[in-house]
Amino acid sequence: MSCPCEVLVDDCPERTAREVLQIAATEALRIERKFSRYREDNIVHQINTAEGRTVDLDDETSRLIDFAANLTAASEGAFDLTSGILRKAWRFDGGDQVPDESTIRELMTRAGWNRVEWDRPRLTLEPGMQIDFGGIGKEYAVDRAVRLLAAAQPGLGVLVNLGGDLAIGGVRVANRPWTVGIESTRRPDEAIQTVPVRAGGLATSGDSRRFVLRDGRRFSHVLDARTGWPVANAPHSITVLGRTCTEAGTLTTLALLKGSDAQPFLTATGSRFWLQ
């Protein structure tokens, strides 16, 4: 995970703080090792190089696949674990390079959850297809770390922050809230707003530097798995406060996929959110 990670711990002895940090770091690194698509020694690599063969998944991976399949259904196909392959055609460097239609069409034949056979715990991808947990892995690691900490140090107030996606566990002394800043997209390291939060998770999606400009339209780096095209006119950045970091992160992704309709969509979900 190439991002700054931190664990904030409420008032406690140093020994406890070190233990908390150790638990959180171990879990985050374990999840990264297991689900990173850049490694060759993990289950994701096994799936992505199966070339049509069936892979038997362990329980944790099965749960992540179930979760993603649910999301695909809920978003009517816009969210898709197999859409990562489309990145081969798109370069989100702020320029105006758009791949030609035939390249996208060709890649689309290797994307789409409807081409996948999922009979838990047996997963079969068509040859050439790949999955990518990039959209949910980090948020999942945050929530997992918080849960492990709740088991190891019941009640202790902690905040696990993996590159801006964070979740809160336990209760702080005197039930004080954590003050979380929503980072400005225009002025990094500056908060557009600070919010007192006592529980739940916060996640941010979108990146002001990763986009394509075409015919005056600004395409974000989130690709709609149904068209193979990025979503136009989405907010630069979406931050959502949810019950868990995974829930918040998923909502930001789904909202980005709604493009200019992100705001009404988030309002309807009843979550608190910030758009930039």
């Binding site: 979760f67 849960r147 019950r243 995974t246 829930e247 789904l254 009843g270």
Partner: peptide, 12 residues
């Protein structure tokens, strides 16, 4: 949002 909350609970 409801479907997501349920899916998250199952996942975690």
């Amino acid at each position: 949002a409801r479907a997501l909350a349920a899916a998250t609970c199952t996942l975690l």
